[in-house]
Every structure is written in structure tokens, then in C-alpha cells.
Design a protein around this nucleic acid. Structure first.
Lengths: 103, 103
DNA sequence: CACATCTGCACCCATCTGGTTGCAGGAGGT
DNA sequence: ACCTCCTGCAACCAGATGGGTGCAGATGTG
């Protein structure tokens, strides 16, 4: 399940903040993020690792630095999964309610 | 931020499994869930606490037992939030791409 | 070349968290 | 009243996790 990694990645506030900054700047290095967010560069690097494994971010090397860019596909896919799930729950609830009431 | 709690709640596999079972059965008690899922009842109770605080589940007392039902609203809201976020990222990326290419 | 930077690796640390067991307390059933 | 069954509380544990520091290595720049 790909959603799992995305959900775990998004569950952390610092990680969400990193995504916001990267999205806002278009691209950013760990070092830049580190002085935009009150956390050490190393912590940022670890978070970027999690985000990259979830596919939410992609790092491309440019000389001596690594520029990270945001990737929306996994986010959209997970959103779609959640929407389907919510619809599924509603459908089940509707069935149960109908049985309970009418018959 | 309400999404935070929902994301944290959904990040755990066991919790997702609990939601699945509750949704499938329509309603379920911690005890029932405990022998449907290979985990102690107490662990289930803790998870239900997290899920309830996130609004994904609601427990109603029925005599000596507590029946839990699934609630889709927070799920839908979070899905919507994610969809907006994905769209936002795409919009930003489009702008940056246009600047990089065009002029 | 020498220097400034940025990345990457290796530990270390405290807290969170998923999970367990054990026991007390209520609510039904006989 | 007695037994059963389910909930609720507390303590405890090991491993994951968010965060930090220090240092080596690589890449530009003066």
C-alpha cells in the first residue's frame, strides 16, 4: 500500500511545514529549509528522506547542492483513496440505516 | 488544525484495519474488534481513543457495551484538504515552469 | 592552492507510541 | 445473590522516532 507511506509522511507537522516551504519556493535545498524552519539541517535531511520515500518530494543534484521539488501525484492519489473510502463508508451506513428502518 | 489528528490516526496500519472492520460490520465493540484483529483488547481501546479524538469514529454506550460507528465527515474533509493542496502545488509548479521557459 | 560551503555519515538522547498484562468495577442473565 | 462478560484504569516494556552534535568528504570560488 503506497498510501501508508504518504499518510505517515504527512502525519508530522514539521514535515508538512517543509512541504509548504518547498512548494512556496518552487525548489529548496536542505540547508535553505534549515534556516527557514527552526530545526537543524540534519533533522530536515531525515524528514526529506521520509518525504522522498513517500514520493512527495524529489531531489535532483545540481553541482554541490541538492534541490528538492514537490510532487503532487502521490498526494492526489491518496486524496482519491480517502474520498473513495469516505464514499464507501457512507454507502455502508446507508444500507444499514435502511435495514434498521424500513426493512 | 483538525487534519493533523486525522492524518496521525490514519497513519497507523492497525488503526486503518480497525476502521475497515468497523465499517464492514456497521458497528463494533472493542471486544469484538479484539478477536477480529490479532491485538489485545486494550490496544484496540487505545486506538479507538485516537480515532475518536480525530472524529473518525464515535462510540455510543448501549447497556454494558460501547458500540463504535464510523464517521466519514473528517475523512472527507481531509481528503478535500489534500486535493486542494495538490492543486495548489500544481498551480505553483505551472507558474515556475512558465517563468523558466517563456522568459 | 586555499577557503568557504553544502552534503552525507555516524552516534547519541529523550520522548512517543504501539502493545501487553493484571485487576477493579458495572451491567445482564439465571 | 451469584456468575459471567465487557469496560476502564494503571503500570510496564521495547522499539520507533524526532531532534541534536561532530566530523569527513565533495564542490565551487577567490
Amino acid at each position: 500500500m503506497v498510501e501508508g507511506e504518504v499518510l505517515v509522511a504527512l502525519a508530522d507537522p514539521t514535515r508538512r511545514r517543509i512541504l509548504d516551504v518547498v512548494a512556496a519556493l518552487g525548489e529548496a535545498t536542505a540547508t535553505v529549509l534549515a534556516d527557514e524552519i527552526p530545526v537543524s539541517r540534519q533533522a530536515i535531511v531525515k524528514h526529506l528522506g521520509v518525504l522522498e520515500r513517500a514520493g512527495l518530494v524529489e531531489g535532483r543534484r545540481a553541482g554541490r547542492e541538492v534541490r528538492f521539488v514537490v510532487r503532487s501525484e502521490p498526494l492526489g492519489a491518496t486524496a482519491a483513496w480517502m474520498t473513495r473510502l469516505a464514499a464507501d463508508w457512507d454507502a455502508r451506513l446507508a444500507v444499514i440505516k435502511r435495514i434498521a428502518e424500513g426493512d
